[in-house]
Design a protein around this nucleic acid. Structure first.
Length: 889
RNA sequence: GGGAGCAUAGCUCAGUUGGUUUAGAGCAUCUGCCUUACAAGCAGAGGGUCCGCGGUUCGAACCCGUGUGCUCCCACCA
């Protein structure tokens, strides 16, 4: 078999993904084994997967594959989210490009376009998930507007309504003038911006001109505002009742500039005497505080904005013009009329719509709300009790707790078409009837009014996307629409939720609420928050910066395994990930390393076959027992380590450990130790263990790099099984003595090579080794490997070298190296002096401790013992080095 | 304004109840090698005031206090 020079992922990846699908490895049905279940955070059907998704899906696939290989019945449910506001905005934009206005379409026509969009982008997303190698159960693919899912959302709405938790009413909500819909508080992102505070004159009316000179008060007041375009909505001005400066205005009115409307001066404790001018304009329609003061003082509400953020008829001036353009014009007009006293720079926080990125308007609007207090309580307990554990908990437990303790009612209605339509029907008088269907609503109406055949009109609005997403871990198994079915009983609660920390409130907290409310059980046991993916300069990824790479392009260039490797190796648990293509490059190199190891093994195999069996002359019989024993133990050690790390969700560290096992321990040490001389044939037993170890390391690596591991697993041997389902055997404890011996061997090899390197002795050039040791027998199993690795003619123990030799000290072993070339002792001397300096300093710190009476009295006996050993070891080494130095001129 | 987290090598990070830690890894850097698996490589090496200050302790990267600097979340002061 001819293997290509380098590993070529393109052909391999599709081949194995198809194979896995054909073998139904991803498909799960309830059975006897324990389940390990993950529900994918459904990506929005708005576009393609970005790097954040890539990280998330990779993490989930690693966990799923590891569980699949560890005896679990694994089920990973894929799907997508209809993302009502985001998708509707995209579809509206797409239609506009085609010259179609949403307003000119019927609801049904629009939905047809939206479903076409969903079909297109949903499939792109699914194909990307497959390309990445994700082992999801495609039979379970769920979309949040699938028929059953739609019904589940409606059912839950009706249920919560009947429980009195959902109500409809006029409240101050966040209005998105671009999407022309209400938003929840969570959908508003506050950003700090440089704004201006405008000081505006309001003329006082009913002022007695004679009064003026005596009081010394001017005939106007000055009010500071950031939003001069809202003055037309003013219905009062307000000062603090304790503020003497404004007492003379009790019972008076002032004129709103430009429209000259008289509004009363009122007094309320809310006003801070020390801020601005101490007097505040009250615009109940456009500010939550003003609204509350308005309620208290019975003020009217004048909404001066249209739905799209232009001035309404009620504004009287600049009607139909855009709010921020009007701000400029009003400031200009005020200035010209001498009503603008001053402008001040002012930093403030402005709310932006998370989806459309426009400034959100506080607006009084009739919407549907969900009462949250009662739902929050069990959700909070689930986390504080440890029933659900969040990783990393130190970062997010407090945030979670704070939000739930201070949660406000959730505005769940959206003025959109793309989503689950609110199951509420109205009669001509506006009475509302809530039922899962129109028939049901009519029945309720009939029961109430005993009138038949009345025409009811359904609410035009749809529900917030998150009102469907919060049911995800339940309804993907149809736990709402078909309670108690086999799937939901078997898979719920799912094992772990892997998601971004940015949706802790939007989604995670609400899923826990829904789980507690509808299943009386947590939806998942663990929540693992991944960090945000940023570019290597730490900036957020965005289209504008052009730093958001295309996943398919990356896979094309590096292969899916390398992408997975690159993103995981750079992804410290709980921290943001600084994405750098360099780490993908590293992944590609790693692929190649594995590939080359395979080539070496195959070369050995070929020679064994050519020479036939059993062993004949020319077969290299190396004493490599130690190599196999050592690697077996090292493997055991790593297995335990990796299991522990993965259990703690420290996936990046686990990968680093595996990487080092493969590159350093297997390739650099083990394979070199057993490698026969050029032209010689490897011993078959040794070869066989090399193959078995290769299988073992592939298996450990498989969750991270599924394609190449499957490929090499099959190239290694003809076989019928697949690595994807190869079960991990029980881990064995490593023998510490063997590991220590291995370290000693590696240390000596490295040190001797260093000597050769520093003295310009070519690796091929032979040397003679004399080792002074207290344990010569420990070298029995190491000797042959050692001499081959450093190219020694011979090794003698506890014998003096023939002539002047280079001396090094490794651990407690003193090694003399005889070479054929003339050597310069100065480099060696330098090294020894450096070591000596270190050791003396070290000894000094140990001595200080041991000569401290308090230490000896207070420290634990084993610690003191340890320090004594440190001391004697250091002294021993110092003596050896000093001896060596005395022989160097 | 309230809360959380972080600060260790040029970069990204480990350092698990304070004691083989005068501190480790990967990447980057430097030196020498085109050695028959691998130059996408091999063999080596260098590199740190553990953010500053104070305290607790026989002993601190680790615990406490304080200062500084980042990051994030929440909040209605015009």
């Amino acid at each position: 078999m001819e293997l290509s020079k380098n590993y070529l992922p393109a052909n391999t990846e599709d081949k194995w993904y198809k194979h896995w699908l054909a073998k139904n490895y991803f498909i799960s049905t309830p059975e006897g084994r324990p389940a390990y279940t993950i529900v994918i955070p459904p990506p929005n059907v708005t576009g393609v997967l970005h790097m954040g998704h890539t990280l998330n899906e990779t993490v989930q696939d690693i966990l799923i594959r590891k569980a699949r290989m560890s005896g679990y019945n694994t089920c990973w449910v894929p799907g997508s989210d209809h993302a009502s506001i985001a998708t509707e905005a995209k579809v509206v934009g797409m239609l506009k490009e085609r010259g179609i206005e949403k307003n000119n379409l019927s609801r049904e026509e629009f939905l047809k376009y939206a479903f076409e969009w969903k079909e297109k982008y949903g499939n792109i997303i699914y194909s990307q998930i497959a390309k990445l190698g994700c082992s999801v159960d495609w039979n379970r693919t769920t979309f949040t507007m699938d028929d059953h899912y739609y019904k589940a959302v409606i059912k839950v709405f009706v249920d919560l309504y009947n429980k009195g938790l959902i109500y409809r009413g006029a409240r101050m909500i966040n209005w998105d003038p671009a999407a022309k819909t209400a938003l929840s508080d969570e959908e508003v992102e506050h950003k700090e911006v440089e704004g201006k505070l405008y000081y505006i004159k309001y003329e006082i009316v009913n002022i007695n001109t004679k009064e003026q000179p005596t009081t010394g008060n001017p005939n106007y007041i000055v009010i500071a505002t950031q939003r001069p375009e809202t003055i037309m909505g003013d219905t009062a001005v307000c000062a603090n009742p304790n503020d003497e400066r404004y007492w003379h205005l009790k019972g008076k009115s002032v004129l709103v500039p430009l429209i000259n409307k008289a509004v009363p001066v009122i007094f309320d404790d809310y006003v801070d005497k020390n801020f601005g001018t101490g007097i505040l304009k009250i615009t109940p329609a456009h500010d939550i505080n003003d609204y509350n003061i308005g309620l208290k003082h019975n003020l009217s509400v004048i909404d001066t904005l249209n739905e799209d953020g232009t001035m309404s008829d009620a504004a009287q001036i600049y009607i139909g013009e855009e709010r921020f353009a009007v701000r400029k014009k009003i400031v200009e007009e005020l200035r010209q009329k001498g009503l603008l006293v001053k402008e001040e720079e002012y930093t403030t926080r402005i709310g932006y719509s998370q989806r459309t990125n426009v400034v959100v308007e506080p607006k009084i609007s009739t919407q549907w709300f969900l009462k949250m207090k009662g739902l929050a309580k069990p959700a909070l307990e689930a986390v504080t009790s440890g029933n659900v554990s969040i990783h990393p908990g130190d970062k997010f437990n407090a945030t979670y707790k704070y939000w739930l303790e201070n949660v406000k009612d959730w505005c769940i209605s959206r003025q959109l078409w793309w989503g689950q339509r609110i199951p509420a029907w109205y009669d001509e008088e506006g009475n509302v009837f809530v039922g899962e269907t129109e028939e049901e609503a009519k029945k309720i109406f009939n029961n109430q009014y005993s009138t038949i055949n009345i025409q009811l009109k359904q609410d035009e609005d749809v529900l917030d996307t998150w009102f469907s997403a919060w049911l995800w871990p339940i309804e993907v198994f149809e736990g709402i629409t078909s309670p108690g079915n086999d799937d939901i009983s078997y898979y719920y609660p799912v094992s772990v939720l892997v998601t971004g920390q940015d949706i802790i409130f939007f989604w995670v907290a609400r899923m826990i609420m829904a789980g507690m409310e509808y299943m009386h059980e947590k939806p998942f046991s663990d929540v693992y928050f991944t960090g945000m993916v940023r570019d290597k300069l730490g900036r957020k990824m965005s289209k504008q910066l052009g730093n958001s790479p295309d996943l398919l392009e990356l896979i094309k260039e590096y292969g899916a395994d390398a992408v997975r490797f690159g993103i995981m190796i750079a992804s410290p648990a709980g921290n943001d990930l600084l994405f750098d293509e360099g780490s993908l490059e590293q992944g590609k190199h790693f692929n190649n390393k594995l590939w080359n190891a395979l080539k070496l093994i195959k070369m050995w195999e070929e020679k064994i076959k050519l020479n036939g069996q059993p062993a004949i002359n020319g077969i290299e019989k190396i004493n490599a027992d130690f190599a196999t024993t050592w690697f077996q133990n090292r493997l055991n050690e790593v297995r335990i380590e990796v299991d522990k790390l993965m259990k703690e969700f420290r996936l990046s560290e686990a990968l680093k450990t595996i990487y080092s096992l493969i590159w350093d321990d297997y390739c650099s040490w083990f394979l070199e130790w057993i490698k026969p001389d050029y032209g010689k044939v490897i011993d078959e037993n040794i070869y066989n263990s090399a193959v078995i170890f290769f299988e073992d390391i592939l298996q450990i690596l498989h969750p991270y790099m599924p394609f190449i591991t499957e490929e090499i697993y099959h190239l290694l041997k003809e076989r019928n099984d697949d690595i994807i389902v190869k079960q991990f055997s029980a881990t064995l404890l490593p023998d510490e003595k063997i590991l220590l011996l291995g370290n000693k061997l590696k240390d000596i090899i490295t040190s001797v090579r260093d000597v050769k390197n520093k003295n310009n002795i070519k690796p091929k050039e032979t040397i003679k080794l004399y080792i002074e040791t207290q344990e010569p027998t420990s070298y029995n199993s190491l000797q042959q490997i050692l001499s081959r690795q450093v190219n020694a003619e011979f090794i003698k123990f506890n014998t003096s070298p023939e002539n002047s030799a280079i001396t090094i000290v490794v651990g407690k072993e003193k090694i003399f190296i005889n070479t054929n070339t003339e050597i310069d002792g100065s480099a060696q001397k330098e090294k020894l002096l450096k070591d000596l300096g270190y050791l003396k300093g070290f000894l000094n710190t140990v001595d200080r401790k041991l000569s401290n009476d308090k230490f000896v009295q207070n420290a634990k006996p084993e610690v003191i013992e340890l320090e004594r050993k440190k001391k004697s070891d250091a002294e021993e080494k110092i003596t050896m080095i000093e001896q060596s130095l005395s022989t160097i001129n």
